[in-house]
Amino acid sequence: MLENLLANYEEAVAVILFGIGFVMLLFQRNLIKKLIGLNIMDNGVFLLLASMGYISGRKAPIIADGVQSTEAYINPVPAGLVLTGIVVSVSVTAIMLSLTVRLYKRYHTLNLDEIYILSRHLSEDR
């Protein structure tokens, strides 16, 4: 069990990061900390993808010096997926930050519980 974990330490770290991010996103009451959790969670997945896609000893998939054998290069798809994932993650974070700004301007706090209580008392919000 432990040897397997050590042999795949990158994957293990990635899944632990995902777990940390997931729990932060779920249980932190502060919106900014939630967003940090979101980014840690996404980066965990990207680390998993990137580490799986890399085979040590091989090169980036750009044909150089006329070597055309597929044995010489790594698979470009995981890198492509990571890039797509990063774009998605950035845009989601941007939207969430803008929502956070809007909530902060209105309620002057970042704590979701406090915002919830405040929103129940403000009559124009109902």
Partner: peptide, 17 residues
């Protein structure tokens, strides 16, 4: 209104999970 932003934030958080 404030409540929709709050609802949207909660909706987004669960969706992101």
């Amino acid at each position: 209104i404030g409540r929709t932003t709050l609802a949207a934030v909660r909706y987004m958080i669960l969706n992101l999970l």
